[in-house]
Design a binder for these strands. Sequence first.
DNA 1: CTGAAAGCGCTTACAG
DNA 2: CTGAAAGCGCTTACAG
Lengths: 345, 345
Amino acid sequence: MSGDRSATANRSPASLSDVARIAGVSVAAASRALNARPGVRPEIRARVLAVASELRYRPHGAARDLAMGASSVIGLLLPDLDRTIPPFWAWVHRHLCAVAAEQGVGVMVYFLDDIAEHLGDALIAKAWRGAVVAPDAARYRFVRDLHESGFPMVLIGAPAADFAVPSVDVENVESSADAVRHLLAVGCRRIGVIAGPADRTESRLRVEGYGRALAEAGLTVDPSLVIHADYTVLGSADAARDLIDHGVDGIFATSDPAAIATSWTAQRLGVDVPDELAVVGFDGLQSDVHDVADLTSVVQPVDALTREAMRMLDRSEHDGDPERVVIDPHLVIRGSTRRLAKPGG
Amino acid sequence: MSGDRSATANRSPASLSDVARIAGVSVAAASRALNARPGVRPEIRARVLAVASELRYRPHGAARDLAMGASSVIGLLLPDLDRTIPPFWAWVHRHLCAVAAEQGVGVMVYFLDDIAEHLGDALIAKAWRGAVVAPDAARYRFVRDLHESGFPMVLIGAPAADFAVPSVDVENVESSADAVRHLLAVGCRRIGVIAGPADRTESRLRVEGYGRALAEAGLTVDPSLVIHADYTVLGSADAARDLIDHGVDGIFATSDPAAIATSWTAQRLGVDVPDELAVVGFDGLQSDVHDVADLTSVVQPVDALTREAMRMLDRSEHDGDPERVVIDPHLVIRGSTRRLAKPGG
DNA sequence: CTGAAAGCGCTTACAG
DNA sequence: CTGAAAGCGCTTACAG
């Protein structure tokens, strides 16, 4: 409360000038040494490095960015799901951080609602290289402002029709058709679909794929077998029950949470999966719940999606039409459609 | 490729000096106006604000931090779970962002493995106000170095015995005892526990609580009913099966994923929950899977935990023993222990 | 090879 | 009330 103030003062982290002073060189030399720039006598470099290590020196990233006119941080704008992170986005989040780390880039994470409620559009974005955003972002005024002002932004997923932002997405229609073709192949004749929210682009596309596969098989779409739900387990359980009540023998869930809800509900109702009901999901979540349900699913190539998003952030041209990258997902077959016998039609 | 370079150049975001110049005032005045500092003629302020808005000016957070010697960003160091975010940490993550946003603070998220593999300890932390870390952090050399160098850090959860860092945690022993007392109260006589990894502090404490409740009831701990698993659904399913094979009528799972595994496994085996097997979890995850399983659980007060962690970051004294805050969780009773009849002992 | 100087975008005493 | 100046921690031409 009075005495050894010096000991405490020493706690403030060492700066480059501290290192330079103690090593007996200029800050310019110290900077060059630390950054392995050419033109520093080895002896000097060694001394600087030693002092830096001794002082536990670590560079001030923001100051460096400022000086270099560069940016080593990107933003990630996430949707909120009942005070937690939606499973798919947690997955994207983790991969984006990995890809960013490879490039020495940090990720600042914000939830769209928080920005709207607290931060306003201030402080956000100015020092960022750009931002990766979820489709939900289109609903926020500040996101559109940001985009219109030329701020680099790439959306992962299917952008809303009125939001012309660069995007990376999986191919939705054919991959969904493949999922349904698979259900047909294992013997399903009456297939229902749990769609996402009606206003979501990717939901519409996935249902389109569903229709395409049925048409190819000479089947028509029964509207009562197309049920909309959100992308949550809880919110999809009723849809699953409805479809089962309608006597389906196969369900294409346009999200893994919906597929898990289906699997769970079937189990509750004593309906055997996969023999009485085959289930295909969409996402390929790495979550362990997903593993336990042993779901056949259209697996999103999240590593490729985030890697591409990162790349697009840099070449954000902003002239002409926004770039759209589409990556093919893969249907991974697992227990929920692995029937021993294929019941005839 | 040649022509309107100016149009492109204009894309670079407006700086304070741009605003000042166009408003015809000094940058100092512009700064004061924008920050609502006293001593600016209303007329000037209005002009500055108008220009700023016109130019879509937004402050450069890092530059401001640098000038003010402050920091408006904290770090969050997360564990990795098979290339995704562990459910409990996704929950903490979301709340921490909310609490930070209230204070105009941003959150930089890093995964411990990524730092160890790619970033090294550089670039990290220098400009942060401090970092919130998971117990796993103790396993990383760079985290310990950071801590030893006086960097503000607070751990959410139970710190390892040899890692003297400030921490916020739930009370583990009594709350676990309560969970088990509840199982006894609904009629369970043979209660098993799915513990966490043997080297985790909180796992040891929760098992201690389990033993305490049994002892109070005059029961002794049967070692074959204490099974260690990790905190994942998949990794806990075998433990659940083992316990069921041992004829338990109640299971205290020290994590919600383990409880979900139990519920799922019981269903698979045709064992009715809650009537034949009552299940209590720990965490109170808001995840929808959790909702569907309708688990009775010891709910962690994540909002309070993150709020307290945020507060502790500021008064990181670093002298004497590290501060330890313990918050009481609450047992929330739901379907997995709600028996119609209480079978006698 | 090395150092003094200017500058990145901002804020805050300090003089007018 | 207002502006010129110094400074936050760094980097990079530019002269020696």
